[in-house]
Simulated assay, not measured.
Amino acid sequence: MHPADSEISPALECRRLSKAYGSGRVVLDGLDFALGAGEFVAIMGDSGVGKSTLLNLIAGLESADSGEVLIDGAPISRLNDDAATRLRRQKLGFVFQAFHVLPHLTLAQNVSVPLLLNGMPPAPALAMLAAVGLDGRGDDLPRQLSGGELQRVAIARALVHRPRLLLADEPTGNLDPQTAHEVLALLREETKATGAATMMVTHSEAAAAFADRVLILSDGALHAAASLASFNASRDR
C-alpha cells in the first residue's frame, strides 16, 4: 500500500489467511497481504503452491480454514452467497487466460455485461473499447478478432464498471510474445488510469516485469522477490 492510501481502506486485505486440503497439504499459512488502489502486483511461484487457490479465496469462490479476505473493507469471506455475489459484481473484475468472451454477443455487448449486472447504463462500453484500442469495433463479433484483440475485450469488460480490484490469472498465456507485451502494457496503463488494484498470477518473467511489485508464493506465504533472476536460481537448485 502506498503512503497516499494510508487514510483509506486498501482495495484488498488478506488477514491471517490459511488453507489446507484433505491430504493435510498446507497451501496458505497465516498469509497477510494488502494491495492499494492503482497498484499492480504479480504473484509468482511453482505449480501447485496455491496461486489459483489464493485467487479463489480472494474472490470468495473457496472458503479459507481461518483468517479473512476484505475487498474495499468488506469481509467477503464472511458474507453469504448472495451478498458475496453482489460484492464480486460491484467490486471485482476478472481477466483470464482463456478470454471467456461470449461468442454470440457483439464486442459492445460483451463489455456491457458487468454494467447491466450492476444496473448501470451500457453507454461506457464503447468508450472502454476505444480505451483498449478497439474504437469503432463495437458491432464486431468475437470470431472476427485475433487472440490479442480478444484479450483487449476481456480487459475492457473487466474494468468498465470501475472495480476496486482486478484479478488476472495468466492473462497472456495464450498470446505470442509481442502481443503479450502489448496487452500487458495496456493492462498496466488501464490499471493506473482507472485506479483499480491489480493482482496478476503468472509464470512469465516477462509478464511479471510489468508489475510494481513481484511476490513469490512459497511455503504458504508471500515473499518479496529480490529479483526474478534470484527466484529462478532458487527453483533450479
Rank of each mutant, 00 (worst) to 15 (best):
A208S: 06
A20W: 05
L165M: 06
Y21M: 10
P103H: 05
A37M: 03
A130M: 01
E190P: 01
L228N: 13
V95C: 12
R88F: 02
G220E: 07
Q109M: 05
H223P: 01
L134D: 09
K19R: 15
S218M: 10
N56Q: 13
G38C: 09
V183G: 03
D139V: 07
I8V: 15
A196Q: 09
V69D: 08
E68T: 12
D46H: 14
A193M: 02
M199I: 15
A233Q: 15
F99W: 14
V69H: 10
D140C: 14
L166C: 10
G220Q: 08
A130Y: 00
L217M: 01
V113A: 03
A180V: 00
V27L: 11
D135G: 11
V41T: 14
R143A: 12
G67H: 08
G195V: 05
A193C: 04
S23Q: 12
T172Y: 02
H100G: 00
S18N: 03
P3H: 08
T53E: 10
G24A: 06
I8G: 10
I155F: 06
G22L: 13
L159K: 09
E39M: 05
L134W: 04
A123E: 15
R89N: 15
D236I: 03
A108E: 15
L87V: 10
G50I: 06
Q178P: 00
A131N: 10
L167Q: 09
L107F: 09
S218F: 02
R143T: 04
F94D: 05
A209E: 12
A154F: 11
A20N: 04
L79N: 12
L28N: 02
V132Y: 05
A211D: 07
F40R: 13
F231D: 02
L70M: 08
L35W: 13
L126E: 15
S204G: 02
H100M: 04
L55A: 09
S23V: 01
V27M: 05
S6M: 08
D82P: 01
P142L: 06
V69Q: 10
I43L: 15
E149A: 10
L129V: 04
L129N: 09
L167F: 09
A208L: 05
L87D: 11
E149C: 08
P114K: 05
G24R: 10
A197T: 07
L105W: 09
D5C: 09
S227D: 03
A131C: 00
A11R: 11
V27F: 03
L126Y: 02
N232L: 10
Q109W: 06
E7A: 14
G220L: 08
K192I: 13
R137M: 07
D176M: 06
L35R: 14
M128L: 00
S9Q: 12
E68Y: 02
A127M: 00
A154R: 13
A197D: 07
A83D: 15
L186K: 08
A180K: 08
V101Q: 10
V111A: 06
A197M: 07
V95E: 05
I76R: 14
D169F: 04
G30Y: 04
T194S: 15
T194D: 01
D32G: 11
L70H: 12
L87Q: 13
E13L: 07
N110F: 01
A64M: 06
A168Y: 11
